[in-house]
Design a protein around this nucleic acid. Structure first.
Lengths: 351, 351
DNA sequence: GGGAACATTGCATCCGTATGCAAGCGACGA
DNA sequence: TCGTCGCTTGCATACGGATGCAATGTTCCC
């Protein structure tokens, strides 16, 4: 009757609307809508009939229209930067899959030194995302985050923002840094050092403070405490060389694995030191590279799956209960001992 | 007059709508809409007045409603997987920034072996993305891609799909593979080998064929040609060991840098071979790791910026001219010679 | 058998913005 | 001075689906 060219799926044509499908089937548009809305008031028979027809005619609800009606976008905005550290791609990948399980698509907002952060946050609001997940380590002002997350579910992952009470999920940095210090101590190393990445990030502050404190508690000496400036291989390399030129140290804790990798190469290849014999090296994260035989890096493993799971569950809770008070959620990690601190450790076999 | 509590920005309240702003200002809703639509029929004075008021009252257009009206989502769906290879996070990051320049947000669709691909593609359609950019190396059926991209701008990056005429942008794999072969030849290596990653991907097929062909042209012998099975360090490690156990080879081209890294470590640390003296090693991509002194890997650099630029421009063109015929766009890369093939090469300095 | 409680369904309207159309207005030429 | 043209502006409606409410049909119990 209409321009429904024929009753098969129609490629290249404008997509079928609920109203059209309804008319073709002789039911109301409401019925079509309800067929696709779980828990709505519709008989199983009608729903089946509609879903079947929808399948045959290749109808599917227009998510945009649905968003407008429900004021629910089913989109989570993920604010991201620092993609150079392989920890984050992995985290994001798993997170995005975790969010899909609760029917949330991930809209990525890339914050980078070059880009216009404010513009990104405006977009966050314009797209009406239901939830904001902030992973970026880049410094964001509390005010703008407040504005961007205002009235929606929000979770900070692996970071906090000063003076801004927001729900956060983090690997337990204190536990991890203490575990590294304890491990150094158990190895009999007493002249230890710390290499920070970005000095003002919350992850770094927590790791650094916990490490320094624990080192003092155990009666070890903190020889060097330097900031590499960023979380990169090159920065770790530079920092290690700087340390090697200074007073002798017998164990170095790098704030993450990438720094540690750069550091190890510098110590071995440029400073002529043996790892772990002359200096033990530990990192943080347990990214893929830490398992590579060349590095075989002792590190504190961030429990990615648990972090993702917790984040998703917090988002879900907040969506259900908008008034939920903010909470902090440290997730326990695990010390992974490898060859960079222990000579006699048998390296994991590559299967 | 209404419940406009006061005339300052109102946090926590529902966002202001164009209609409300219009009524507060005594203008029509159309005027507000036009003020935010470049090129629309409105006097500069009124536009300024409205934008100013919008700023003060913290009004911004609801992107969802706008999408519904215009049938334009200003969203590009990026179909992704393989986030383990650092080349991709970098590419995605730059791509997402490039798309932002033309006012497209990036909605990421993570395809992974575990996840439900069909479901992802349904979402792609439901969200009415304007453009689809497929980066994933994972095998997708032509039919489903056809369906997902039907009627919208689409670009394949660094891959093609058999029997599916779609616009694609790729690093010139043939040029790269030939350059590596030529380089090996110039080094006097005549017993060369090739290590594939995922054997059936288009990138691999192109690199492998071009390399094998060129090797024959130059009169070199292809000793080994193995498939590592995936693009990972471990796979490269395994493949290198396998090769080292077999007939002697004096140069190995790994299909990408990560494979090459695993391979180099295996050759040096497990097979007791010297790189480059006993065996020269080359990769493909030029990821960050290739520059690390420990690897200092000769590789063919993918021109990421040019790829991104071309992709964005193709998307733009397709959005302007929906009927644009598909095209293939190889982008020229660059051979980067480092220490893994040339002894006397002075390693780049870490600044 | 009558009436009430419940399950289904359709109707009408709303979500917030974009845009075709016509009305209003000033400028300009004849 | 009048008519016409062009620029602004507002009005009305469309975009596609969700949902409160009323209408209808069904079931169950006394």
């Amino acid at each position: 009757m209409n321009n429904a060219d024929d009753n098969t799926a129609s490629p290249r044509g404008k997509p079928l609307t609920a109203r059209e499908l309804a008319r073709l089937m002789g039911v109301s548009q409401s019925a079509v809508s309800r067929a696709f809305t779980p828990g709505s008031s519709i008989s199983p028979e009608l729903r089946q009939r509609i879903l079947k027809a929808a399948g045959e005619l290749d109808y599917q609800p227009n998510a945009i229209a649905s968003m407008l009606s429900t004021r629910r976008s089913n989109i989570a905005g993920i604010v991201v930067s620092e993609m150079q550290n392989p920890f984050y791609p992995t985290l994001i990948e798993k997170l995005s899959r975790g969010l899909q399980r609760v029917r949330l698509q991930s809209l990525m907002f890339n914050i980078t030194r070059g880009s216009n952060i404010e513009e990104q946050l405006v977009a966050l609001r314009q797209y009406n995302v239901d939830a904001v997940i902030i992973i970026s380590a880049t410094v964001l002002s509390g005010a703008s985050v407040q504005w961007a997350t205002d009235g929606r579910a929000a979770v900070l992952v692996n970071r906090t923002i000063p003076d801004l009470p927001l729900t956060s999920v983090s690997c337990d940095n204190v536990e991890g840094a203490r575990a590294i210090a304890d491990h150094f101590h158990a190895l009999g190393r007493h002249r230890v050092s710390y290499v920070a990445g970005l000095p003002h990030t919350s992850t770094n502050l927590e790791r650094q403070n916990a490490f320094v404190t624990r080192v003092a508690e155990l009666g070890m000496r903190l020889i060097h405490c330097v900031a590499a400036g960023e979380y990169s291989y090159e920065a770790g390399h530079r920092a290690a060389l700087e340390i090697a030129r200074g007073e002798k140290t017998d164990a170095i804790f790098f704030a993450n694995d990438i720094l540690a990798a750069g550091g190890m190469d510098a110590l071995r290849e440029n400073a002529g030191l043996r790892v772990p014999e002359d200096v033990a090296v530990a990192g943080f994260d347990d990214v893929a590279l830490a398992r590579w035989p060349h590095y075989s890096l002792t590190t504190f493993r961030q429990p990615i799956d648990a972090i993702v799971e917790k984040t998703v569950s917090l988002v879900t809770q907040q969506l259900e209960t908008p008034s939920l008070p903010p909470s902090r959620n440290p997730i326990s990690g695990e010390l992974v001992i490898r060859h960079s601190t222990v000579t006699e450790w048998s390296p994991e076999i590559i299967e």
